[in-house]
Design a protein around this nucleic acid. Structure first.
Lengths: 343, 343
DNA sequence: CACTGGCACTCGGGTAAGGAGAGTGCCAAA
DNA sequence: TTTGGCACTCTCCTTACCCGAGTGCCAGTG
């Protein structure tokens, strides 16, 4: 993109349009800009700028003789070059810290609270997924005999992440046998990674231990790929306040994605592959139902390896500077909170 | 209420009004009723009936010279005396069974699926809470040493319900010590109820075991009261289809309740105290935000003691006969599914 | 050359008026 | 007790209209 080159005053105008539009939600005209943002310029001059910004694809008019509205491309330029990440007000930061401190330390409940708090402080919808990651360390495991040959494997991974899995063994086993095996495995595997588990598995013949190790391996595999990390959302009611979701159809589309937690999970998975802050604006979304929304995503988690996704979903017309700052704050505080409990 | 006494034809008219209104969402007039439901009566006759049903408080007119709409009281009469619970079509039942069979057997994921399926087959929003109950039997427990004096207690209760709790002991303990204690407690407590636990606790002096038993007791207490059973909702997008939620404000109110999972949990808790089917219509709701909604609730769970709440949330104008039937089916199938895994 | 004031034009949103349609209540007659 | 007739009411839809804010263009000015 040749976008970085843009006359400084055009930048200022674009910035003003975006800023104005995010608060009023009404197409902004030359008159308004002249009086509020550019006192030393006449409306006519601004009209020229607006017109050129229009030709460059950063602004559109909903109809002839209406004010300008930023295009997705306009927002993209704004986000890349013009946005000022505003500092998070002290009270907000305190609120986040308090809420997270008061939340239960157990991971699923904590994640839920994180999403709720994020939705509150950004006044948008929030999404979150449970942390997961590559090379997880086993902290503890437990085996419980259920009905017949079925057993429940409870696995605690570094980061206090608890996973459970019901599996069927090739033959029924007693609880005593399982307890012995669990104790043994705990001694050998505590603090180890999947590698170690595989090595053990290879060294053994086909017996109970091998079988259990196989199931453990599959659990860890799912863990690494984030397969079971629950993806949840909160704060949909904040979207209802926004005029862009006034007609139900729009919100319906968005909910189709948010409420389908499988979709949501894989969506989040893909997006935050690399960078630590990802902003996906409107039509940049692969998911067609989100083409009128912006996603702002980052990661959080107890360690550098164990990361979940945390994000804000709202109309493309959102206060990017504020949302980015607050999202970062929440992610930061949430990470602290999680690290604290499981160092 | 002196409602049971109502001339048969008035009953028929009321029933027709409700039925008609649930499909059209438009106030129903004498003409329509005469042609569609009462071929042998003239509109004038029906007008008289309608007028009297209005005086009795079962129907209202949105404005003079408009058709009639059922009042909450009208729906109440309908539900109590007129509703026909329609049989669930074979394909629907099959779908429910398939979906539940395909769901993972682990409880949290299963409950989520149950809510999703319920929302789908009733085309309304669904709510669900994890089963819990009095006199839970302990199936297994595990103790994991965390940072310092903190430990994680993992408790498996009858019904394959897994609970975790991070607690701080009065002194740091080694994992080995915890493992020994866990093994011992498992031998003694497996299959026992809280009573037993208390008895043991009383018989002991102030040592590690007592302390752990105390925490276990608190966990069981929370379990009994349903304190930690997660309450979740799904299918909000179905509500968006309904004309009564066309303006965002209505839906906002409802979401205030649904998205506040604490509220939701306690709400469900209170409601289904006794009966096995509870229908709360509009203004009968204690929660003011739900005064334009109907809740249809029942319980489900792996055993008679372990019950969660399962319910449908929709506009007062809903197809009660269909919703009740399908809710029962889902609850029934879900109970089967849960019982199967943990007999 | 960049900026400005003036001007004619365009379009959406709000308001007012009119008509169609569906519904009602009442009454007298069967 | 039921019915047809009748006058009346009220919402909703359509049409017409005007106002205001905004635009593009152009000629003039520092």
């Amino acid at each position: 993109m040749p976008n970085a080159e843009l006359h400084p005053r055009k930048q200022a105008v674009l910035k003003a349009v975006v800023t104005e539009f995010t608060v009023t939600a009404v197409p902004v005209g030359s008159q308004q800009l002249a009086t509020r943002h550019f006192v030393n310029l006449s409306p006519a001059t601004i009209r020229n700028e607006l017109s050129e910004l229009g030709e460059l694809g950063y602004l559109v008019q909903p109809h002839t003789s209406a004010g300008r509205v930023p295009t997705d491309r306009g927002y993209r330029y704004f986000v890349d070059f013009l946005m000022e990440v505003e500092p998070v007000p002290r009270p907000i930061d305190s609120y986040v810290r308090e809420q997270l401190a008061a939340a239960p330390p157990e991971v699923p409940a904590l994640v839920e609270r994180v999403a709720t708090v994020l939705a509150q402080v950004t006044r948008n919808a929030a999404v979150a997924s449970t942390p997961h990651g590559s090379r997880p360390r086993i902290k503890h495991l437990d085996l419980v005999s259920l009905e017949g040959a079925e057993i429940l494997i409870v696995l605690l991974v570094e980061g206090n992440l608890l996973r459970q899995s019901v599996v069927e063994l090739s033959r029924p086993v007693t609880q005593a046998e399982l307890t012995r095996l669990a104790n043994k495995l705990n001694r050998r595997l505590a603090g180890r990674e999947r590698e170690e588990l595989r090595r053990r598995q290879a060294a053994l013949g086909p017996d109970l231990e091998t079988e259990v190790l196989g199931h453990l391996d599959r659990m860890l595999d799912r863990f690494e790929r984030g397969g079971e990390s629950l993806a949840l959302h909160d704060g949909v009611r904040n979207l209802l306040r926004q005029p862009e979701f006034a007609e139900a159809a729009r919100l319906h589309e968005v909910l189709e994605v948010l409420e389908e937690s499988r979709h949501l999970a894989s969506l989040l998975q893909d997006l935050v592959a690399d960078s630590d802050l990802e902003i996906v604006i409107g039509s940049e979304n692969q998911t067609s139902q989100l083409r009128s929304c912006t996603l702002v995503l980052t990661t959080y988690g107890p360690t550098r390896q164990l990361r979940g996704v945390l994000g804000v979903v709202g109309p493309t017309r959102m206060d990017y500077g504020q949302v980015v700052a607050r999202l970062r704050t929440v992610a930061h505080r949430a990470s602290e909170r999680m690290a604290e409990a499981c160092a």
